[in-house]
């Protein structure tokens, strides 16, 4: 297997942007600059990046409370993302959504969702629309191992399977449902094992290997586009950061996290892989990293300077004006 250099650069760009963005968010939050709370995607970059590299702006994704990585991988602009997390008027949602509710409908990013397991059925509906309109679009639903125990998992996958809808159910099994370890709440070894119960194919991939994710997603997405129906992909990974920034993480040791990150850091693995294979050069990777660091800093600078929403924005967007033709 080999890849075009442009493709690899784009992949690296996505992963580094997520990493740098998230590191900055963590820093800003601990510095008291951000309202609300934030959940970081560090260590899971390969999953969103691998999946979304198979998607176009016409395709849909639904995301989770840990959604910054999905947004970036789908092609969202980090400036309005940063502004949104600051609660500023210039944010994607005019400051009304925040970290857990970033959306960009212009690129098919149907929103992060603050309710764990809230995105499945929305992805199914978007896929239903695509099927009805015969557009060959697909919808990818990102969810975690914790969310796999919601009832929505069952209803959504069954419906998508019964109707052969173009959805990819992408489980990011990071081993932690908030503070509770996976195996204490779930009897099956793999979430993917459940696919049998819905009559759909599944795949288990190393979620820290962006190429493995990319290839698995490619097969599933192609199949969905051709009318073959949904696939359940389980990407095995590990949540490097706490559930939220500031989580005291009493439920695990620092050594455990350290050990996992050293072994499985998807970014580090990518870099050593592409360098070893001679696909990319160290200098160009460094150049990309430097540029992205600057972009993230610039996003922070402008978010800091941007205004908060005006008070008169409180009621806007609650209802849209509808053109109902009246002839009563």
């Amino acid at each position: 297997m080999s890849y075009q250099a442009d493709f690899l650069r784009a992949l690296y760009r996505k992963m580094v942007t997520i990493r740098k963005f998230e590191e900055k968010i963590g820093e800003l939050f601990l510095g008291g600059e951000l309202p609300g709370f934030v959940h970081l995607y560090i260590g899971e970059e390969a999953i969103a990046s691998g999946i979304c590299s198979n998607l176009t702006d016409e395709d849909y994704i639904t995301s989770t409370h840990r959604g910054h990585g999905h947004c970036i991988a789908k092609g969202a602009n980090i400036k309005p993302m940063m502004a949104e997390i600051f609660g500023k008027k210039t944010g994607y949602c005019k400051g009304k959504g925040g970290s857990m509710h970033i959306a960009d409908f212009s690129i098919g990013m149907l929103g992060a969702n603050g309710v764990v397991g809230g995105g499945y059925t929305l992805a199914v509906g978007a896929a239903l629309a695509a099927k009805m309109k015969k557009t060959r679009q697909v919808a990818v639903c990102f969810f975690g191992d914790g969310a796999s125990n919601r009832g929505t998992f069952h209803e959504a996958i069954n419906m998508a399977a019964a109707w052969k809808l173009p959805v990819i159910f992408l489980c990011e099994n990071n081993q932690w449902a908030s503070t509770t370890p996976y195996r204490t709440t779930t009897a099956v070894e793999n979430i993917a094992d459940r696919a049998v119960g819905y009559g759909i194919p599944s795949n288990i991939v190393n979620g820290n290997d962006v190429f493995a994710v990319y290839e698995a997603a490619k097969v599933a997405i192609e199949r969905a586009r051709e009318g073959g129906g949904p696939t359940l992909i389980e990407a095995k990974t590990y949540r490097i950061k706490g559930h939220f920034v500031g989580d005291p993480e009493m439920y695990r040791t620092k050594a455990e996290v350290q050990e996992r990150f050293e072994k499985d850091d998807p970014l580090k693995n990518f870099v050593s892989d592409v360098l070893a294979k001679g696909w990319l050069k160290k200098a160009e990777l460094d150049q990309i990293e430097t540029k992205i660091t600057e972009e993230v800093d610039a996003a922070v600078d402008s978010a800091r300077k941007d205004p908060y929403p005006d008070d008169n924005e409180l009621y806007s967007d609650l209802y849209v004006e509808s053109e109902v033709n009246l002839r009563a």
Binding site: L122, A123, G125, M132, T152, E155, A156, M159
Partner: peptide, 28 residues
Amino acid sequence: VERVIDTPISETAIVGAGIGAALAGMRP
């Protein structure tokens, strides 16, 4: 039956899929 659809007994998915379809340009 493509536009008048019998669903599984899954109220959550019925409403959720309605929301998703609305976001994707339909009027469910």
